[in-house]
Design a protein around this nucleic acid. Structure first.
Length: 543
RNA sequence: GGUCCUAUGGUCAAGCGGUUAAGACGCAGCCCUCUCACGGCUGAAUCAGGGGUUCGAUUCCCCUUAGGAUCACCA
């Protein structure tokens, strides 16, 4: 077989040769030790939290080594592509302080000299390298019916399971040049496949930064390189792009580990230097049956990054949570450096826990609470407003109109040495403080205490004094004593039968009248923000 | 089914041959206190099982078990 002739037959109109392309992408001129990383999502309409996890790692490895972090959009599957998806990805990266150094915004700008950063625009490159492989006898055309979609795949898989086959050598690798010419005449579609060298049995040693040396079976499959639409498969595009773009470290999910030997073989066939690989653990969720599977868009709202924006989580809280998952010494650092910028943390992308973590929203909430508790009222207001503008437009007018009042509400138990830590996302603010915006609809009061409740409130109308906290509480105590409630708690504990209750009980009644609930932030603060008039109004609703 | 990965409390995890086996979240109790929260203190809770190697294994090796990933002209 004349491979050179075959290559010409298959690719008569290639725009460039491999040599010409290589000349367009000179080696990057970077300092010793600088890492080039890339985040390479496919544009399927949303950003997966697992993908973002990788992006954080990419960014940090590049930044800490004075390297380059690229965004490459893997849009080679036209059927799955969602229009506008790459914009969403870019927006989220921006919002989460994870902007790449090199990227492309369709129709707006290209930043970086190693583009195009959309794979669909690199078609000529893949064709050139495919042609080269064919001309060297390392790849061949396949005219078989394509296996497409999961049903096709499952059928093929079943066969291979049953027979215990580990290699998959395609019959088309033995086609004569005459047959190829004939098929081409008939305009039969064809794919380009790798002529696999191994049988899928022999073990090879491979390196992974996190897992160390791995022994895996070599590739034994004549894998597709170029699909019949001449778009590359993931494996081929990965090799060509990362070679041309100068990627030094590939960060990807560990679901890629099984196909790693194929990627190695492709790199070898092409004569490319293998980059370093970091196969990151996937993020899991515990299922009802106690098992765990990777977090998925279909069943887990948290899989889609937009969930966190909608709920009003602080972007940095999520980022810190994820960083802690990768480098668990983060929270120790954070404790020692409570207000240091996140970028100061010496994140180590090469030393990530190899375990598979379970996503824990409770922990995220805690990080978020801690963060929000540090904000002053003005910051809270601005962030709440920004959240509302995007996700809760019905509240925007009110927030703008009554800024002073909202600020006061937000400042309850805030801006003090030990602020409350209850709010962890902006969407919960209106619910949390509902009693600050309207009178309670129900009252958390035991029926057996109804009479006492009403007695206290009737009397309290004459004792309200909000001039300051001490006076306020003094008046409450004064009334409590008069009504037969204990003011001295020790005394009350000693002789409970002598009293109707203690001051705490009296406060509880007042609290329920004002907020509807037995628990709330500081009662005096709430009352003074509400103002005497409204307080009286609320009590009057009951007695 | 083949191949591979992983295995420390409920969750995230430190540990890398000798430790009273860190820490965080969560949980329980106590203190503070007008409630809750905050804060402080205390507590319960972990090395999957079995073989080796070794004077000594949570740590190294093997097996078992469990969980997970993957096996497309999808990435």
């Amino acid at each position: 077989m004349d491979n050179q002739k075959l290559a010409e037959l298959l690719f008569p109109n290639n725009k460039w040769t491999v040599e010409e392309i290589e000349a367009k992408y000179p080696k990057r001129n970077l300092k010793e030790g600088a890492e080039v990383t890339r985040f390479a999502p496919s544009p399927t309409g949303y950003m997966h939290i697992g993908g973002f996890f990788q992006a954080i790692i990419d960014k940090n490895i590049a930044k800490r080594s004075n390297g380059v972090f690229m965004l490459r959009i893997e849009d080679t599957d036209k059927k799955r592509e969602v229009i506008g998806a790459s914009t969403i990805i870019l927006e989220i990266l921006k919002k989460y302080d994870c902007m790449p150094d090199e990227f492309e915004e369709k129709g707006v700008q290209v930043v970086g000299n190693y583009g195009p950063y959309f794979q669909s625009e690199r078609e000529e490159y893949y064709k050139a390298y495919a042609k080269k492989l064919v001309s060297e006898g390392k790849a061949f055309p396949c005219f078989c019916r394509k296996t497409e979609g999961l049903n096709d795949v499952k059928e093929k898989r079943e066969k291979m399971f049953a027979l215990g086959i580990t290699e998959d050598k395609d019959p088309c690798r033995n086609l004569t040049i005459e047959q190829v010419e004939e098929y081409l005449q008939e305009k039969k579609p064809f794919a380009i496949k790798l002529k696999a060298k191994g049988n899928g049995q022999n073990k090879i040693k491979v390196q992974d930064v996190l897992k160390g040396e791995l022994e895996i079976q070599e590739n034994g499959e004549d894998a597709v390189l170029l699909k019949s639409d001449f778009m590359p498969t993931y494996a081929f595009a990965h090799a060509v792009d990362d070679h041309l773009m100068g990627t030094t470290t590939v960060v990807r999910g560990e679901e890629w580990l099984p196909s790693y030997p194929l990627h190695i073989e492709i790199h070898k066939a092409l004569g490319f230097k293998l980059p370093k690989y970091i196969h990151t653990p996937l993020i899991y969720k515990i299922r009802e049956n106690g098992g765990r599977t990777k977090i998925s868009k279909r069943i887990d709202v948290e899989a889609d990054m937009r969930y966190f924006s909608k709920e009003g989580y602080e972007p940095q809280a999520l980022e810190e949570y994820l960083i802690n998952l990768a480098n668990s010494n983060f929270e120790i650092w954070r404790k020692e450096n409570p207000s240091a910028p996140l970028d100061d943390f010496p994140f180590d992308g090469f030393n990530i826990t190899a375990n598979t973590p379970v996503f824990d929203i409770v922990k995220l909430n805690d990080i978020s609470k801690e963060m929000i508790a540090k904000y002053d009222a003005e910051t809270c207001y601005q962030k709440l407003l920004a959240w509302a503008e995007e996700n809760s437009s019905e509240n925007v007018d009110y927030l703008k109109k009554d800024k002073d009042y909202v600020m006061k509400v937000l400042n309850i138990d805030r801006e003090k040495e030990k602020p409350r830590k209850d709010i962890y996302k902006w969407s919960m603010v209106f619910d949390y403080f509902d009693y600050m915006f309207s009178a309670p609809k129900t009252y958390e009061v035991d029926e057996s205490e109804r009479k006492k409740f009403e007695e206290v409130l009737r009397n309290y109308k004459n004792y309200i004094d909000l001039s300051n906290k001490d006076i306020w509480f003094g008046k409450v105590k004064e009334m409590a004593e008069k009504l037969g409630y204990a003011v001295d708690n020790k005394e009350y504990k000693k002789y409970p039968e002598k009293f109707k209750g203690n001051v705490a009980k009296v406060c509880e009644f007042i609290r329920v009248a004002i907020t509807g609930e037995k628990n709330s932030p500081d009662l005096y603060e709430i009352m003074s923000v509400l103002g005497q008039e409204k307080v009286l109004e609320r009590i009057s609703l009951i007695v």
